Simulated assay, not measured.
Amino acid sequence: MTSSESVIIRCQDHAAVGVTFRDRFSFDADSVHYAVELRAPGLNARVDEVVSWIWDSDLAPFLEGLAADYRGWEGERSWRTDDADLTVAAVFRSGGYVGLTWTASGGGWGASVTTWLEAGEQVAALAADIRQFLRGER
């Protein structure tokens, strides 16, 4: 689910588990700053200033690559911000599902949740939503 100001990712297997991208802002043409919130039963974590640099590989192309490989892959694929305050590890599960483990960290703490999405369409839609969010296109 996406609005003009956020992207909400809900786990296919457990609706109480999710990730929200929100509070996007930019100081200049070179970067985008945003907050990421993780939630699960007994967990609410937030990192306030995740930074994406326009000249680096951002999250959207990583997710687009996962969507393109909807038939699956072996092992784990991962992505992280330059500051490692947000990392994503992806695995493929039989039956056509992708597990995305989102890890947020900062100031000596870290928290992770895993969301399961259908390979292909759901991951492609997420990639498009993230791309639009990071570009501020709503």
Rank of each mutant, 00 (worst) to 15 (best):
W73D: 07
L43T: 12
L59E: 00
T81N: 06
D129S: 07
D13F: 04
L63T: 04
T81G: 08
R77Y: 08
G108D: 10
Y97V: 09
V17H: 07
S57Q: 15
R138M: 12
S6M: 13
G99V: 06
T103A: 02
C11R: 04
T101L: 04
G65T: 02
F92T: 15
V50G: 03
R138E: 14
A119S: 13
L126P: 03
S4A: 07
A35V: 11
E74C: 01
D85F: 08
G110Q: 15
T115P: 10
F21M: 15
A111F: 02
W102C: 14
G18N: 08
P61R: 07
A119G: 11
T103M: 07
D69F: 00
V51G: 04
R131P: 11
L117Q: 12
D30F: 00
S57F: 06
I130A: 12
R131D: 12
F21P: 13
F27V: 02
D56P: 03
V91D: 14
W53F: 05
W73M: 01
T81S: 13
Q122P: 09
G108H: 10
F27P: 07
L86Q: 10
V51H: 03
E37L: 04
A16T: 08
D56C: 05
F27D: 00
V32W: 02
R131Y: 06
D23K: 10
A84G: 09
E76S: 04
F62D: 00
A127F: 00
C11H: 08
E64Y: 11
I8R: 06
G72N: 02
A60Q: 01
A127T: 00
L59V: 00
L134N: 05
E121L: 10
M1K: 07
R22E: 15
T115A: 15
F62N: 01
R22L: 13
I130K: 05
G110N: 13
D28F: 06
N44P: 09
G72A: 02
N44R: 05
A84S: 13
A119N: 04
S4R: 11
W109K: 11
Y97I: 03
Y34M: 14
V91R: 14
A125E: 14
F133Q: 06
F25G: 05
W79A: 07
D85A: 07
T114H: 04
E37S: 08
V17W: 02
A67F: 05
A128E: 06
H14Q: 12
D48Y: 12
T101M: 08
G107E: 14
V51L: 08
F27C: 06
E121I: 08
A67P: 15
V32A: 07
G18C: 09
S57K: 14
A45H: 09
D82K: 13
V47S: 09
L126R: 01
F21A: 13
A128D: 06
R138H: 15
R22Q: 14
S26P: 00
S52F: 00
D83Y: 11
R22P: 10
E76D: 03
A90C: 07
D58F: 00
T115M: 03
S6V: 10
A84Y: 14
Q122L: 03
R39M: 00
L100C: 11
A40I: 07
L66S: 11
D13E: 11
R10G: 11
F27Q: 00
D129R: 02
S31W: 00
S26K: 11
A67I: 09
A45P: 11
